[in-house]
Amino acid sequence: MNSDKFLDRAHDIQDTYGYIPEGEIDKMAKEFDVPRAKVYGSIRFYSMFYTEPTGKYIIRVCDSLSCHINDSKSIVDSIKNYLGIDDGETTENKKFTLEVVECLGHCGEGPVMMVNDEMYTHVSKNMALDIIKDCT
């Protein structure tokens, strides 16, 4: 790609559509003058870029070691239970996508979760469900 604009463009598209559609990759390939496969491969390297539509809210729960020690698994389980989806899945109404992710950099305040850009710390099971219920 050889352009420091690539990630910006991809973020913009991701923010606009909630994922990076095929046609946009075609456009990026032309913009950056590389084979479209290369753009696709690069996009697919990053876990915050999606090539399929995701839910309106992406819930990311950290399960790296410090959070794991503080029982992040129980948070994950209760969300899974409540939404009826597994890690990496989206609810049928396309509202929520759940992801168990690695370290979110709030290891001193675990367990932590993010909903889209919002960070929540010291999350309990009930708190997690309340956060989800507040998403409209």
């Binding site: 990630l7 973020h11 990053y46 876990s47 915050m48 870029f49």
Partner: peptide, 8 residues
């Protein structure tokens, strides 16, 4: 500023 996209 470059915003990363989820890759440790």
């Amino acid at each position: 500023l470059i915003k990363g996209a989820g890759a440790y």
